[in-house]
Every structure is written in structure tokens, then in C-alpha cells.
Amino acid sequence: MPDDKLRPAPTLGIDIPPGYNEIPLGDLDTLLESARVMLADAVPAAMRDDVPNVLGALHFMPASLAANNALYCGFGTHLTADAERVAVSWLTVSSFEYGEERNPRLVLGDLVTAKADRKAQGYLTIVETPAVPVLYFEWSEKHPVPDIASYPVPGPRRRYSRSK
């Protein structure tokens, strides 16, 4: 089976469900520099030393998504089914070239098999669209808590650094 290959973003139309806010994936350095100024001015003096760590954590996710061919990323807040809690969710759309062009259902079968071989755990389903079937795979990941002294949280911490 061929390896996943990154490719230029295709022309693609998607309808994003209501309630999601787009996270820009391009020119993160400019975006975060403007955020640095805004955050430094907005936070209490006791939190200003943490601004670089917050920006490092903010840079980590969209930079990782962009490096993995994400076409769209957004976050939303939604009420849980019992309407008693607010849940935060992320929606990411990526596109990969996966071998030679062939029947999309065979390609999706190979992708499902590859996930099973890697013991990937999550919710997987095939969504039938008017044009082609689409693989939907949802999973949760836990990441170390960023080292932000003014926001104490128990558990392992990690400093996020920006690399160029």
C-alpha cells in the first residue's frame, strides 16, 4: 500500500456546520505577532510573562495541522446532549493523495485497513456524498498542558516552542 503523500490543496467545496470558528492556517507568524501585542496589552501584569508560552501553544496546533495538509480547521462550542455542559470540538478537513487514481471505495477500504493495522482508535464511518464517499474518522488526543504559571493545572506540562 502506498504511503500518504501531501499534495497541493485541491479545489474543494465543503459546508461547515454552524457554530464553528475558523482557525487561520496561513502566515502564523504574522497572526501570532499581532496576537502577542494584543495579549500583552490585555492580560493582567501577573500574566504577562506567560504570553510567550501561550503563543507557543497557540502556534503548535495550527502549525501541525498545516504541516499535515489541513485545508480547514475550526473550533466550536456546543451544548452536550443533556444541555447541561458546554463541549469544545475541533473540525479539521484534510486531503491526501493516496496512490494511483482508482475506485474511491477501494481507496477508503485501504485507508480503513491502514488505520486498523496502526491500531488507530476512534469513531470511523463512511459518509456518502453526491460525488464520492468520504472517510470520517474522529478521535481524541491528550497533549501535555502548556507551562502557563498563571493558569495552574495539575498534570504534566510542556513548553511549546516556535521553530522556524
Rank of each mutant, 00 (worst) to 15 (best):
P156F: 06
A87H: 13
Y20P: 01
A40H: 14
L25K: 05
A87M: 07
Y160C: 05
A66W: 01
S161H: 15
E22M: 05
K115D: 14
V54F: 09
E128L: 03
T92S: 10
G56V: 05
H143K: 12
R118L: 15
A120R: 10
E141F: 01
M1Y: 06
F137Y: 14
R85F: 07
K119N: 11
L79N: 09
M47N: 04
V88F: 07
I16K: 00
G76H: 02
L12V: 07
N69K: 10
N69S: 14
V145S: 11
R157G: 01
Y20L: 01
K164F: 07
P8N: 15
C73S: 13
L55I: 11
V112S: 14
R36H: 15
D110Y: 08
P24Q: 04
V37D: 12
D117L: 12
T30M: 12
A114D: 12
A116K: 15
L32T: 04
D3R: 03
I148W: 02
L71Q: 05
V134L: 09
Y98G: 09
P146I: 03
Y160S: 04
V51S: 02
E97S: 13
K5M: 13
V153T: 05
I126Q: 11
L6Y: 13
A46R: 10
V112E: 14
E33K: 15
